[in-house]
């Protein structure tokens, strides 16, 4: 029997590939959200596997808030060039022109305009009927309730109390395209953070240097280690810049992504750290804590 066994990572891989292929076969115009982070990188690799030896049969979409780490832009452009993908970048210019930012507008409004609204605009502009996202159910409690195919109405809204039942691997891809309905697809639904790192190691997937520990300039704000970038992160009175050995568990906007103290400079050390860590990765995302049930609320409004 031994020769008919595969590891659980290969099981997850096979499941994800099945999902990717179902979407490409059943939708007219899918797109894959690419956020430059580790989950996106794994998702892109799975897509390469699903359609090998062909190219990715859909474009990548980066919703750019313009507030990402400089290292992310550099990594993104090299990565896309290397794999020959078609990258679309969308920014909510109207919001940028209205000077929406986390300091003057607050994180809730900033996020709603630069991420959620930008995403909705981008999906509408591209006339996409399905959008892959790298969300995982182990990330956050409302995401634990998310379907693999998450139906969204014409405003991109999620109705958690009224989700389509999802049985076996039979996904209901029917939508009213003319009305602007679409499906958000989560091929990594059943992956955990540790799975992602195991897979990155096994597959030798290139990773952004921000994930590795280095001495970085940091300001302490509300108990979080916020990275300091000159001209990008304004200092509040009394705050001082420190140099701390740290890394990022997740990547987002500079202003809202906290670092963790770490000395892990290799993937093996990161995995080792993951084994011991007692806090979830979303703790480093300021936006998840800015209101009660914030992730659920954001998802209802159209967030991934």
């Amino acid at each position: 029997m031994e020769k008919y066994r595969i590891s659980n990572l290969k099981y997850l891989e096979a499941e994800s590939i099945h999902i990717l292929r179902e979407v490409v076969a059943e939708f007219e115009n899918p797109v894959m959200l690419y956020s430059v982070g580790k989950d996106s990188s794994v998702m892109v690799r799975l897509a390469q596997k699903a359609f090998h030896p062909g190219k990715l049969p859909f474009p990548l979409l980066h919703v750019d808030t313009t507030r990402k780490f400089p290292e992310m832009y550099e990594f993104r452009d090299n990565f896309v060039k290397e794999i020959g993908a078609d990258l679309k970048v969308y920014t909510n210019l109207e919001a940028i022109n209205n000077n929406i930012n986390p300091y003057d507008s607050g994180t809730v409004k900033c996020c709603s305009q630069l991420k959620t609204q930008a995403l909705l605009n981008a999906l509408e502009e591209g006339n996409y009927d399905a959008a892959f996202g790298g969300g995982r159910r182990d990330e956050e409690k409302s995401r634990a309730k998310e379907r693999v195919y998450s139906f969204r109405d014409e405003h991109g809204q999620w109705d958690p109390q009224n989700q389509r039942p999802e049985l076996w691997n039979l996904y209901n891809s029917r939508i009213n395209r003319d009305k602007g309905e679409n499906i958000r697809v989560f091929p990594l639904s059943n992956w955990t953070e540790l799975d992602i790192w195991h897979y990155i190691k096994l597959e030798n997937i290139p990773m952004n240097p921000l994930y590795y520990a280095a001495e970085r300039e940091i300001v302490r704000r509300n108990g979080l280690l916020i990275p300091y970038y000159k001209d990008k992160v304004p200092l509040k009175p009394g705050e001082k810049i420190e140099k701390i050995m740290c890394r990022f568990r997740t990547l987002g906007c500079i202003d809202c992504t906290a670092a963790i103290e770490s000395s892990a400079t290799t993937i093996d050390e990161i995995i080792q750290e993951m084994m011991l860590v007692r806090k979830s990765e979303r703790i480093t995302r300021v936006i998840d804590h800015d209101q009660d049930s914030s992730m659920e609320q954001k998802k209802k409004e159209g967030y991934f």
Binding site: R137, D138, E140, K141, S142, R143, A144, K145, P160, Q161, Q163, S189, N190, T192, D292, S293, E296
Partner: peptide, 22 residues
């Protein structure tokens, strides 16, 4: 409460929908 992921579930103290745990 850890398992009841939706706000209405936590408020009503009941589980409404399938949740996946790892």
């Amino acid at each position: 409460l850890l398992l009841d992921g939706l706000r209405s579930e936590r408020e009503q103290g009941i589980t409404i929908d399938v949740a996946y745990r790892y």
